[in-house]
Design a protein around this nucleic acid. Structure first.
Lengths: 213, 213
DNA sequence: CAGATCATAGGCAATAATCCCCACTTTGTC
DNA sequence: GACAAAGTGGGGATTATTGCCTATGATCTG
């Protein structure tokens, strides 16, 4: 690990920023600390400063943390960005992760967690607060993953090929059966899945893990 | 924290089990250690023993760790189950999480991690090996969330309604335009999205976040 | 072995989608 | 004002799908 890191704080709450600056200035990990009020301010400075780590608030005026993360990583992809949020809101952390953040801390974390996050993320790992982790696991959990269909094997096969975009004639050629048989299967699938047309079939197949998007 | 925990090891590899038993027997966390070869053996004993923690292998003969986890939690929901797997396979951990496991360790973990996992999970937290965490984050990441379409507003609207299962005539009535216009839009959408039929359109819409399943 | 389910397949008809052609209006931009 | 793009709409034809009728052989189950 490089001795000392350049840390950039981006948060519109001055008092919070000052407090964190003080804590970080006493940390052995940190050499320089820079600050910005919002995403726009950060973007103006990031290429001159080339910070190792950015601690980024999400809710900010002018440019929020999600946009700022995307833009910063376009300009300077080497930066590691850790999100700092008041809330373990699912949209926040999924969007921050999509945007390229490597860590996610809640503002009620202990400073020790902040230091751990900085060290981990600087070393290429991810760091997420236990609360965030818990929320992520819960959201993984809520996908039912049911394959709760009373479709027969052949029907599942036909449905899968419908999703792949084959017409009944093409499937008939593919499966070495008559087009009329495929017609029949399709009709039965429509009935069983209570769908009214192809669109409904595809949606059903995806929901029931017969087809992956 | 309760002084000492009852730990149940479920793994078909005797040598691995013996090694882990030895390590655990020297741990301050642990009072009693129980063992089983597979899920069926575990189920026979679990209600008599009422273990605090079960360390559960996934790939086992007779009854695998995923089924075993589901069954154990039906019988005795208080048990905390930690999965122990050779591989950070996505299906493994998602299914184990769905089944109700609270932690997931790889077999190449350090014993220290096992102890941390036991402590965390016993205290109601989740514990996942860094490798697993990494895989989970990556799988969150791989959803591109792009709305990168050159479809016009009206085309997006039509595509959305196709996914809802409306026919062109129904959409025409819905949008107060001619069926021929909807036909035209649909034709243009097929062209622009390079789809060959309705199934392709629905898949495209889902991939591009025009429609949610 | 009787009955159910599954996979097979055909007839026939109506509706829906796809693929060409065409044209007109509105809106915004250079 | 010329041009492009978006939204509108029609003619006409082909192909796909859906819906409802029938029926047969295979396999499984009580």
């Amino acid at each position: 690990m490089k001795e000392k890191l350049k840390i950039f704080l981006v948060d519109d709450h001055t008092l919070f920023r000052e407090g964190l600056r003080f804590l970080l200035s006493n940390s052995e990990l940190v050499s320089n600390i820079y600050e910005a009020n919002n995403g726009k301010e950060l973007l103006k400075q990031v290429l001159n400063i080339k910070p190792d780590i950015i601690l980024m608030d999400i809710e900010m005026p002018e440019m929020n943390g999600i946009e700022a993360t995307q833009e910063v990583l376009k300009l300077y992809p080497e930066t590691k960005i850790i999100a700092l949020s008041m809330y373990a809101n699912e949209n926040y952390y999924t969007e921050m992760i999509d945007a390229g953040a490597k860590g996610f801390l809640l503002k009620n974390s202990k400073f020790e967690d902040v230091q751990n996050a900085i060290a981990d993320v600087y070393n290429g790992k991810n760091y997420f607060s236990p609360e965030i982790l818990h929320a992520i696991i819960k959201s993984l959990n809520k996908k039912p993953k049911k394959q709760n269909t009373d479709l027969t094997e052949r029907e599942v096969e036909v449905l899968y090929n419908i999703c792949k975009g084959f017409s009944n004639q093409e499937m008939a050629d593919l499966l070495y059966i008559s087009k009329r048989t495929v017609d029949k299967h399709r009709e039965n699938i429509l009935l069983k899945t209570q769908s009214k047309n192809t669109a409904g079939l595809v949606i059903y197949a995806i929901k029931n893990n017969i087809f992956e998007v």
